[in-house]
Design a protein around this nucleic acid. Sequence first.
DNA 1: GTATTTTTGCAACACTGTCGCAAATATTAA
DNA 2: TTAATATTTGCGACAGTGTTGCAAAAATAC
Lengths: 132, 132
Amino acid sequence: MTAIGILSKYKMSKTNGRVKILKELLGSDVALSERELQTRLEGICDRATIYRTLKLLTKKSVIHKIATEGTVAKFILKKTPEDHIHFKCTDCGKVQCMTGVVPGNIELPKGFIKKETNYLIIGICDECAKNI
Amino acid sequence: MTAIGILSKYKMSKTNGRVKILKELLGSDVALSERELQTRLEGICDRATIYRTLKLLTKKSVIHKIATEGTVAKFILKKTPEDHIHFKCTDCGKVQCMTGVVPGNIELPKGFIKKETNYLIIGICDECAKNI
DNA sequence: GTATTTTTGCAACACTGTCGCAAATATTAA
DNA sequence: TTAATATTTGCGACAGTGTTGCAAAAATAC
Ligand SMILES: [Zn+2]
Ligand SMILES: [Zn+2]
Ligand SMILES: [Zn+2]
Ligand SMILES: [Zn+2]
């Protein structure tokens, strides 16, 4: 689906900034932070606009937010609604979705109610592992 | 083990701040942020000292750091060296270790090297679930 | 086209976490 | 116990993230 298509689908105004932000996210196989988007967009729009857009797209479930050990949140297109694991490389810093790696069916103690998950594995990615 | 005992074991100077911080962590079954420690200690020591102590204790593996979806890191005593899941309640905000809940043996794609994990489940804790 | 609604940029803000450095405290050795 | 040495603290400054109010700008509806 195209950026414009997605914006139409969720009844979001098609502004220049939003289209460009979505295009970057659509074209990236790794999660991006506001900062990284800012750099890629070369000041096409304001920080605040990027944050607002990321928030809105997350709410619409177009993208999802990944909590890493650092301070920065990263965002990536949501390809599947299912729980899955994320991987963060300590070498290149890339954060990506691990599709195909299924987290075992986790059973919580009695009384606990699961809403969403945030599974992150930190290590060395396949690309970086080659150069060790 | 006592706060003093732990500090001795890891050859850390027994300062007032460190003892108090460790005591709070030893007495808490939920993860605490620097802010929460600050409040509990009622200004016994500086922000910077708390951050430095938390960093050092994490390095010594006395406590561990939990990344949540927000910006704040929380710390809790490390009872086991094994990978385990954490639970964050959206109602009361508590973050705790889920001992007993074992994450299935996750197999990464070829080439990826695991160093550490950060598994977080977000939902309603048993206590809060009672009052719904 | 104009009217209306939504979004933007800007500036200000609160907050987290880090660091250098002089002063304070803890450890050590006598 | 005291003096010498080593470590830690508090303070202030800083960089960075994310949020918000508001007037101007842009997009949508008519
Ligand atoms: Zn890598
Ligand atoms: Zn994902
Ligand atoms: Zn709760
Ligand atoms: Zn834990």
